[in-house]
Design a protein around this nucleic acid. Structure first.
Lengths: 333, 333
DNA sequence: CTCGCGATGGCAAGCGATTGCCAAAAGTTG
DNA sequence: CAACTTTTGGCAATCGCTTGCCATCGCGAG
């Protein structure tokens, strides 16, 4: 790699016989310069293969045309959709997309935000593990958009799981189940709380007994312990915090020779890759995670420039739907 | 979000009673400044909560402490490992990680590189779809590291699939198979070429007939057409370009009532998430993709600063290994 | 024919660091 | 103690672009 001194705005200016400011305006604020000059400058810029330096632009203007997305665990398929959606949207808007894994740690989130603060226009916090207070505090200084998390007054995009959770309960109720176990995710997970609340709520309404176990790590490996715990309760239906956990449970149950769904029904959340081809295939609450990612980027974009003004409460709620597969069935006698 | 005018190096300088340059040196080149002053400056910086502006630093110094990774398809599980490995390594080195999806298009790769050129120290091209010539050309101007792709003279990290491919053939041969079909991936894919070469090579050595079909889109949906095509050939073993395709094939075969592995054996590449719990579980060539990602970042880091000097041929080769599961078995009579 | 005003382009001051060069201070050496 | 060498800190230029402010110009109005 050689550094052939990229052409700058000054090169273009000299070549076009105008001032640098004119070149700058031609690019950022075209109507501020006469059509004829503009054409000329553009032509010269094109000929010289001019590319603006995002750094210089950002340094001067304060706009970086970059967003960062913080994710608790990149490898969790649950986030793939969100990541993709956000990346696509950012890319479409010509915005650079920074991805950062916070390894399920609130402290890491803080550190990373601090670190990136000056390099980005805003942050997308996906399933943030931080407390509401902390998030609100950060929102004072940074432009934030939340995904699958709600905090009073902050823009957020969430896939609605309360309605969906009730659907799950109804589905189970209709199959004759009288009790269910919820396998909870990380206890800092807002989502986990939401889901439990709706499940319990729905269960109550249907006269179903609901128990919460956990927290379990929301990964395949979490399924082992979770499955065993479930068996002890004697419940006929399990709702896992996510598909990963659910699939883990399925595997463990298979190992132990427990028939799903004959003896126990299993439900997950997210409809991740693989949920349709595991055995038995998984009944799960699917949601447009990619749209949540995309929406988050949009919220961020709306929001920038606005510096002191608190954004009017912008929250996007996306509908989820229950995908019924083989892992749920009639409750046993 | 408010903009409380972040504290700058000048604020620290004033407060500490030294020149800005001293502050700068304290941070970048501590031994250049007296221990006493250094301590003092650090204390003041700490007290004021000073955070350097990456933008300003980059603009002046040319080092951005950022790398970008270009991936043909973010949603393809094959890349998850690579992405994770690269992100982790970058993060550990305090380097910002930009992720960009090129949607399987060589032109997109070019555009994105052009776009990000000034904002990053280098690019990681994962399974690039560009031609060797194009890549070499780009390497003149940019700092590149390749993943799962080799181009003369450029640093690269690849999971060795030639040895692995031969293992696959041996495995199949030992099961009595006399013919195999390779389901090829995108034809711009270097990997696809490599794999086919090694397979054919191995097949020849074992007196096995090998046929290549395709290209097929390396996704689940590609499996439908692929499976049908395979059945026509009457081969008893299929090696798919990747697990996604392989799983797609499994599904289609199941639909058509073809018994795997009784009637046909299926092998994939990558050992992606799900390969172990699809049915039948998939025999596949696993490789440390995350290490490839991590290695690529390291190659990039070694390489920066060096501007004109061409890097000594640095290539990392990672071993793969065959994971035998249920999708392969004795060849039928 | 003069005045006022909008359109247009240039000047120059930043944005927040880094770094070459220089001078003063401190340390070495014979 | 003189003559040097090292250390240490400051000055000022620079990276590439944006933008407030000012000067000029052309033109329609009075």
């Amino acid at each position: 790699m050689t550094s052939p001194k990229r052409t700058t705005i000054y090169d273009v200016a000299r070549e076009a016989g105008v001032a640098a400011s004119t070149v700058s305006r031609t690019l950022r604020n075209p109507r501020r310069v006469n059509a004829a000059t503009r054409e000329h400058v553009l032509a010269v810029a094109e000929r010289l293969g001019y590319r603006p330096s995002p750094l210089a632009t950002a340094l001067q203007s304060g706009r970086t045309a970059t967003v960062a997305m913080l994710v608790p665990d990149i490898t969790n398929p649950h986030f793939f959709g969100t990541i993709r959606g956000a990346e696509r949207r950012a890319s479409a808007a010509g915005i650079t997309f920074i991805l950062s894994d916070t390894e399920e740690s609130a402290d890491n989130e803080l550190t990373k935000i601090e670190h990136l603060a000056r390099s980005v226009d805003g942050f997308i916090l996906a399933a943030s593990r931080m407390s509401d207070e902390r998030i609100l505090e950060l929102a004072e200084e940074h432009n934030l958009a939340l995904v699958n998390r709600e905090v009073r007054g902050l823009p957020s995009a969430v896939v609605d799981t309360s309605v969906g959770s009730r659907q799950i309960v109804e589905h189970l109720a209709s199959l004759g189940h009288r009790s269910l176990v919820y396998l909870s995710g990380p206890h800092q997970s807002w989502l986990a709380g939401e889901r439990w609340d709706s499940l319990r709520d729905g269960a109550e309404r249907h006269g179903i007994r609901a128990v919460r176990l956990g927290p379990f790590p929301p990964r395949l490996v979490g399924g082992g312990a979770a499955a065993d715990a479930v068996l002890v309760t004697g419940a006929t239906a399990v709702v896992a915090h996510n598909d990963l956990l659910a699939i883990g449970v399925l595997r463990r149950l298979a190992e132990r020779g427990v028939d799903v769904p004959r003896r126990i029904s299993v439900v997950g959340y997210d409809d991740i890759f693989g949920a349709d081809f595991c055995v038995p295939s998984l009944t799960t609450l699917a949601g447009p995670q990619d749209q949540a990612g995309r929406a988050a980027v949009e919220l961020l974009l709306e929001n920038r420039s606005r510096s002191t003004a608190r954004t009017p409460d912008r929250r996007v709620m996306l509908p989820s739907h229950l995908v019924i597969r083989e892992s749920t069935g009639q409750a046993p006698e």
